[in-house]
Nucleic acid binder design. Sequence first.
DNA 1: TTGTAGGCGTTATCAC
DNA 2: GTGATAACGCCTACAA
Lengths: 331, 331
Amino acid sequence: MSMPTSRDVARLAGVSQTTVSYVLNGRGNVSDATRERVLGIAAEIGYRPNQAARSMRTRRSGRIAVIMGAGIESHMQLLAGASEVAQQAGYAAESHHIDGTPDDRGERVLDLAASGQYEGILTIAPVPDELAAPVGSDCVIVPAATFDAELHSMGPLADATLIGTFVETLAAAGHRTFVHIAGPDDYVSARARAAAYTEAVERLGLRSLGLIGGSWGAETGRRAILDLPAQDETIAVIAGNDDLAIGVLRGAAERGWSLPDDLVVTGWDNHEFGAYTTPAITTVAMDFREAGRRAMRRLVAALGHTTPPPEEQGLMRIVWRESTGELPTAG
Amino acid sequence: MSMPTSRDVARLAGVSQTTVSYVLNGRGNVSDATRERVLGIAAEIGYRPNQAARSMRTRRSGRIAVIMGAGIESHMQLLAGASEVAQQAGYAAESHHIDGTPDDRGERVLDLAASGQYEGILTIAPVPDELAAPVGSDCVIVPAATFDAELHSMGPLADATLIGTFVETLAAAGHRTFVHIAGPDDYVSARARAAAYTEAVERLGLRSLGLIGGSWGAETGRRAILDLPAQDETIAVIAGNDDLAIGVLRGAAERGWSLPDDLVVTGWDNHEFGAYTTPAITTVAMDFREAGRRAMRRLVAALGHTTPPPEEQGLMRIVWRESTGELPTAG
DNA sequence: TTGTAGGCGTTATCAC
DNA sequence: GTGATAACGCCTACAA
């Protein structure tokens, strides 16, 4: 009871196998009657084209590798969006989880590209910036987040403009002393956020206690607060993500600082827990699934040598909560 | 500059293409000298077997679909472990993210099985219990967590015995009033935890305020606490996971209840945030990545008609923290 | 509008 | 030990 082939369909429909192929691929000129008959038979016997045979003939594997790191929660949503678009475009998306440094990953990615098994590779976890597919392989490597040639961040993942909004809004509310707790600078998004922070602080002439951090983990946020010299005015902490922010909350509690009087803090990602801490964390809600879709659309477009659809903005919005004293009533 | 084929290797090595195939697959009797020469040439010119051609000939796609739901963070780790094992076993793991009810997923899974594209399907997100591959397809469907025929939970994901430990330990510490906030009973793990809770409470003759819940979300935990009638003794809350537990924390804060005097709570999953809430959440740390490996090993074993390696226990351990008053000093 | 024929790169069955 | 040779299921000139 093996799978029916296009020959079986042809036989049952009383046509040649070529005609079946034409019908299924929409090529050639097939009469409506024939087309309908073939389609009917195919559906009836549950014919499914054999991908392996098709790949062999077309020399296109139809496979895309998605490179994931370990443990970043939002990557799961990104993968979901990416694999959704890949499937719609007729590609199979395989996830590869590669631990280690960006260089480690870069090596593995190059090997995957050289393997000839994949038409494209989407890197969600960070890889070295100048990673290009090896010569002789026509595998397209597309990072989910990048800078363009002029160091403007590209793609929704690297859009850090709302960091500026955080700083501006808090400054307008009277805050003068800021500090940024950044993610690892392997990440384009972390670099973009740090850059946006620096720009805003300098532009507004605010006092900055500097950029600290270097990981996405809560302990880094806690440590940062514990290590801060005592302050006589409220500190506004711009954390790179919600994990760092909850660490900040913990550090503040351990120092006996209360929010929002001694300290205010913003996060990023809108993880569910942030709405249930006390105080709840002001953050940026981002549609990761859609971001994953867009990244994969860029890759698919590159594979088809078409231009990707323009990326309308609007994937992010600020959620003001108790950790900043719930600021913007209007706006 | 297309990829070299086994014919190229054969020509360069001065042997027949058949011999190259023998060398690469370890079949037939090939002399050491020949083998070494072939292997040398293959490595030199960067030969990689063409998967599509191989699949076509062997009638094995080498592909496994992994069914994920939306938004459960730990699924990411499970996938990482599963895809690791799949790759080692020579399979390509493709993740499919299917939203909706278990029934929705079941339908899609059946379709995937019938498509003939996959040799196996690993379901991480819940699907209907009695899901079996359609006749005529030899696609193996293996759930990551299941009950066996006698309703004992199978697989590390469904092991809820530590719920019993929570209840026993808290009872030994003097707690008499318990309540369980359960996850959605689509999940084998949620059902297993609820069952373990009920068993322990009855066995020890404790007072139970019942089983409430029905989702994994923090809001459910918060709501549960807000809806609880006022109590004159400490309530011990056994939450189905850390998200529920942080919701409990929030609800308690809103009611002005303080921990661990008015309420104690346990979570499950050891999400990072749980160590940084105030109070930090007592929970169960589980090696999801290893759990994913084991699940995939079961599937791979089923595909190869071998018996899976025995699953030593020891994937979980309790992490006592402030939300229970840090109980077990010894043991 | 439809059919014939050849080949994609591999594995497997035979001979030698 | 090694080598012809025939599929596997599909696509696509080219012929009819």
